[in-house]
Design a protein around this nucleic acid. Sequence first.
DNA 1: TGATGTTTTTGACAAACCGTCAAAAAATGA
DNA 2: TCATTTTTTGACGGTTTGTCAAAAACATCA
Lengths: 246, 246
Amino acid sequence: MVELTRKQREIASRTAEILRVARPILLREGFQALSMDRVAAQMEYAKGTIYNHFPNKEEIVLAMAVESMQLRRSLFERASRWQAKSRIRMMAIGVACEYFTQNCREDFLVEQWIRDHSIWDKSSEKRQNLIRQCELDCMGVVDGIVQDGLRDRELLIPSAITPQEFVYGFWAINYGSQILSYSSPSLATLGIHSPIQAVRMHCMTLLNGFGWHPQMDWERCQAIMDELSDGFNKDFESICNNRGTA
Amino acid sequence: MVELTRKQREIASRTAEILRVARPILLREGFQALSMDRVAAQMEYAKGTIYNHFPNKEEIVLAMAVESMQLRRSLFERASRWQAKSRIRMMAIGVACEYFTQNCREDFLVEQWIRDHSIWDKSSEKRQNLIRQCELDCMGVVDGIVQDGLRDRELLIPSAITPQEFVYGFWAINYGSQILSYSSPSLATLGIHSPIQAVRMHCMTLLNGFGWHPQMDWERCQAIMDELSDGFNKDFESICNNRGTA
DNA sequence: TGATGTTTTTGACAAACCGTCAAAAAATGA
DNA sequence: TCATTTTTTGACGGTTTGTCAAAAACATCA
């Protein structure tokens, strides 16, 4: 049953179309403004048809989030394949995070919604698992780099924490920074003009502090990060454009 | 006009009562479940009366957030008054964060809602400013500690970032961790069993990495954090209980 | 081609919610 | 006591959600 009838393909493509229509509504006007009526009207279908694709609007949001997190995972995987010492590859993940927040802003924002329990709980187990899997995969990619660092004796993690908890710190600082820089009422007023530079500096200090070789100073760190940015830009772009094809 | 009539006092106290009723609905069932009808029914008032207190439900959420952020500010201020070297006082802020997340879980969750633009934008300027002020104050408290560290030459911040951006890193890691540990689908599955310990470790490494004296190892760090916890517990508790009196 | 059965689409419908406002009720004060 | 002000009420118009029987479109086969 690999063959799909014309009708079936039509339906499948409409699922994607719904997400395409729903996305700007969610992003620009929030979850409340995203109504089934409105999506239906905009697509010139009856409301019932939309309900054939998604049982409720929460599920639409989760479906969008799956796409976004799969994109993030792709960027992480690409970054992790960089041919360099483990620490540089770890920094490459940071570059992927920066890229994601800056160039895939909409996807980053969509990711936020899944943290809302009332949205999460109304969604199907199937999509919840897809998201869990993505999160697991992302953690796995970074954990792989850490494991390489440990194996090559370029890094030594204190016995008080697990490698995953080590990763968690970077996750938290990046994630926290992204949320704050998006939603905090005017960081500039608080004296924070370049949150991205600040996070770079903190990550460098952390990596140095944990003794991950090669150690480096700010100048060298910036040079490497910029080099990584250049190296990835084209690849990242094509990943962003070709997504959904897999 | 300092004197309030009985009626006026009645009305004022009802505002607080509304928040008391609305809070568990918001926390347990989310923003959508929080309806004016329901609050009114539960308080045995007509809906119009609730609208006399708040022009919409967004404003109720922001009012709750103001309370929560004022509590956070109080905890920060208390922590910052600890008589010790600047670095230890910085760690005291970390303890306040831990306390807030663990013992004032509901307040922490309420804080989240203000990051939702559709809620923020519908609220009154007055409450928005109250929240901005709280955030500014919190930053100010921590910045004060950093300034003391700089003045006493116990800390030297790289010229590439501002003192506020230095603070930002700690804000981000704590904030990010709180959000992740609350909403990430099962951190334990990812191998993260003690997010709080992990954050402690990362903060210690950061503070050491920036050369903030006195430098310390994990054992010493834990000892100090535990001591701070003990020192604050009673004060924090009474702050939590007496809030709203100011 | 046309008759028959299946799948898909449709939009009217009940229930719930938001925010308004004129009228009713309560409080105030002379 | 009665006139004036303040507060409360709940019915109302306009939306939204999710359902479901009927209509339309499609597939299959004689």
